[in-house]
Simulated scan of single mutants.
Amino acid sequence: MRSPDRHDTPAAGAPAGEGRRRRRRPEPTPAQRALGLLVRREHSRKELATKLAARGVPPEEASAAVERMAAEGWQDDARFAESLARSRAGSGYGPLRIRAELGTHGLDEAVIARAFDALAEAGGDDWIARARDLVKRRFGDGLATDIARRRKAADFLLRRGFDGDTIRRATRGSPDDD
């Protein structure tokens, strides 16, 4: 049997069963909440403000916290856009889908264009090669002779956000057919 230590005995004058009470942590400030979200992953300004509001932060305080995070360099829409574009392209999504998703985050066209420029600089914008790789992994070889599979592959790429020209080129039989 284990010997009681000072945490097992009730405090002097306290009824049995009421040992030491834990201190409650003070409620985090809106800036602390925002920083807590940003250390996990990048967020857009719009997304960060929405998440703070969902956690009960009044809109004006959420806005001030987001502005503070941006001023101190913890939040940056351009960095967020580049990160999201790189992640989605790596996951097999096309430029139309990525551009649309970036737009839902309230980013302006200049920030989105810079994200695609950064993707191009890193060599991640060969959309035809990405589409062909997706088709080959999902549908295998021999699409040129199987119209039904080629149509399924085209629908798949369309849902992933690739444009019509890229889809046509990716679903042809051979990369040399260009």
Rank of each mutant, 00 (worst) to 15 (best):
R45W: 08
F116H: 08
Q32N: 13
R79L: 11
A122N: 09
E42R: 02
G164D: 09
H105C: 07
G13E: 08
D178S: 12
P58D: 15
E18M: 06
A170Q: 00
R40W: 11
L134Q: 03
E82N: 02
R138A: 13
I98Q: 00
A81F: 02
A34Q: 02
A129N: 12
A170T: 05
T145A: 15
K136L: 15
A129V: 05
A131N: 08
A12R: 07
G56A: 15
A78W: 03
S83W: 05
D165C: 10
A85V: 00
M69C: 10
S83F: 02
G161I: 03
P30I: 03
A53C: 12
P4D: 12
P58S: 12
R99D: 05
G13F: 05
A131Q: 01
P95Q: 06
E101T: 02
F156L: 09
K51A: 07
S63K: 12
G73L: 08
R151K: 15
R25K: 14
G106E: 04
E60A: 14
L96N: 03
D125W: 10
R20N: 08
G106S: 13
A154Y: 07
R160S: 07
D8N: 07
R45V: 03
K46Y: 09
G94T: 01
R137S: 08
A12H: 12
L134A: 06
Q32P: 09
R149I: 03
F80A: 03
L52E: 03
T29W: 04
T50Q: 13
L102N: 00
S174H: 15
P26K: 06
P4I: 01
D77C: 03
G106W: 01
V39D: 14
R169A: 10
R21I: 05
G36Q: 06
D141C: 13
R130M: 06
R160N: 12
L157W: 02
R41E: 12
M1I: 07
A154M: 09
E67C: 11
R99N: 11
S83L: 07
G73D: 03
E60M: 11
S87K: 14
R160K: 13
S83H: 13
L48T: 04
R25C: 10
A100H: 15
G90A: 13
L157Q: 02
W127Q: 01
F116I: 04
I147H: 15
R130C: 05
A120V: 04
P59F: 04
